[in-house]
Design a protein around this nucleic acid. Structure first.
Lengths: 260, 260
DNA sequence: CCCAATTTGTTCGTATGTATC
DNA sequence: AGATACATACGAACAAATTGG
């Protein structure tokens, strides 16, 4: 289990609430013994004894750890509190909280995607088996036809992001895997909350489909540099089209009687 | 405030504990009204009334939100629970929890750093004022001399990572800024826990110092492509040296009486 | 199917700590 | 200093969920 968030002692006296202290103590305790996911923590009753604190305090501490995804509780006999591996979904949700107030732009997200995705593509070239390649082709096939309305395009857009998520899943680099899936999610959230893709954009569909087909070919043949280049071009193109679309959406909301 | 983590309804009946439900309800409530950091939530007493639940339950819910960094409580008159902007440190700590069990390798981290850092360098070229450049030079100056022992080298290593963190701080891309600082931190944690840099490595010092000096020159002159190239080379070099060092450390722990 | 044991989950009443006026 | 308003903590009792007989 990771070290407690901050270990610097407050100057005056314990400024942290007791549940926080208990949560950190439990965290340290788990780390010292090298407990692994699935291992059981002392029961609430035992913790009440050990820390000599009220039940409510102990429970609040456990909630803190649970909110971080580090433990999970089950009721009943054989139940208790168990060390839990933080899930990718929870990690992404917690990190997403941070960016909620940061007002990321399309440019910000694409700057990162443009840097990461090509490296992912290069690293996977020649390393995928037929089943994996077939799965990717299956996703691409889901948007073989251009969307007829805004709703269909929304679905296609999500499928397209799923293609990238699926690709990331195949990497054996957990950090890269997480970051690519996270940035793709952030992008879809931004586009959703900003109601992008409102004006149907056949060009986006066409170019995305084309790039992904060429990318799959490069991945199959093991051409790493080519895969990197294709993905880089794909990112540049998608970024450009997205910005154009954003501009179009913005224009939509301007007063109808002329430009500024 | 960001949407509650997962909204899928459990099949049987509410599988989430009441505090979790309350936490999500509060989250939604805050989002609906568009409350901003600093805004006050209803007092515990009011929440007890609204949700018709006991104090303990409400308090556990508030702890969940607090653990995520979304709210903060203050006692006393004028006190209460306040919306709080998730700090970068907390976000990094929460994300770090996820990777604790994922066993990242040096290669994994450098694959990401090698992709992100050059883009950061390129994006900053010509955009920094004299004060910012001077601050960067100040950090570089802290390891102008080669380390004489392992402890000094450890400090220099940390300073070197601080250089990258400082550089990231100057980006106006919050996503890139966070990711670069986070990966640098992860690297220092990995090197610490694995006791890397135990054999002093003057070559690492020399090449790092050289690259950073050339990088600063490129940043000052506004040569974006050059800055990107220098940083890319710096990453490749640091990665290579780090791997060599890891190998050296590993060799150290082999039995002394000969190779395998 | 029910019953009993075990463990977390929830409630209420009361008391204490802390910051503001 | 004292009053006030708020979170914080305690303790005992009760409820719900799960497992095994």
């Amino acid at each position: 289990m990771p070290p407690a968030t901050t270990r610097s002692e407050p100057r005056t006296g314990s400024r942290r609430s007791r549940p926080q202290q208990v949560a950190e103590a439990i965290k340290d305790w788990v780390m010292e013994r090298g407990l692994q996911p699935g291992d059981r923590l002392p029961s609430e009753a035992e913790l009440i004894d050990r820390f000599a604190m009220a039940k409510g305090t102990i429970r609040e501490a456990l909630r803190i750890l649970e909110a971080q995804g580090l433990v999970k509780s089950r009721t009943g006999p054989g139940g208790g509190v168990f060390v839990h591996q933080v899930s990718e979904d929870r990690a992404a949700a917690l990190l997403g909280n941070y960016f909620y107030f940061q007002r990321l732009s399309i440019d910000d997200i694409y700057a990162v995607r443009a840097a990461l995705e090509p490296e992912l593509a290069a690293s996977l070239a020649g390393k995928l088996n037929e089943g994996q390649l077939a799965a990717l082709e299956g996703v691409v096939a889901r948007y073989a036809e251009p969307a007829r309305d805004a709703e269909e395009e929304r679905v296609q857009h999500m499928d397209s992001l799923r293609f990238h998520a699926l690709l990331a899943e195949l990497s054996d680099n957990a950090l890269l895997r997480f970051l690519i899936r996270f940035t793709a999610n952030m992008l879809s959230e931004v586009t959703v909350t900003r109601q992008l893709y409102t004006p149907p954009n056949p060009e986006l569909w066409e170019s995305g489909r084309d790039y992904q087909a060429r990318l799959l070919a490069a991945l199959r043949s093991g051409a790493g540099d080519e895969a990197r280049a294709i993905m880089a071009a794909h990112m540049r193109s998608a970024h450009r089209l997205m910005r154009a679309q954003e501009a179009a959406v913005t224009r939509r909301f301007l007063p109808e009687d002329g430009m500024i």
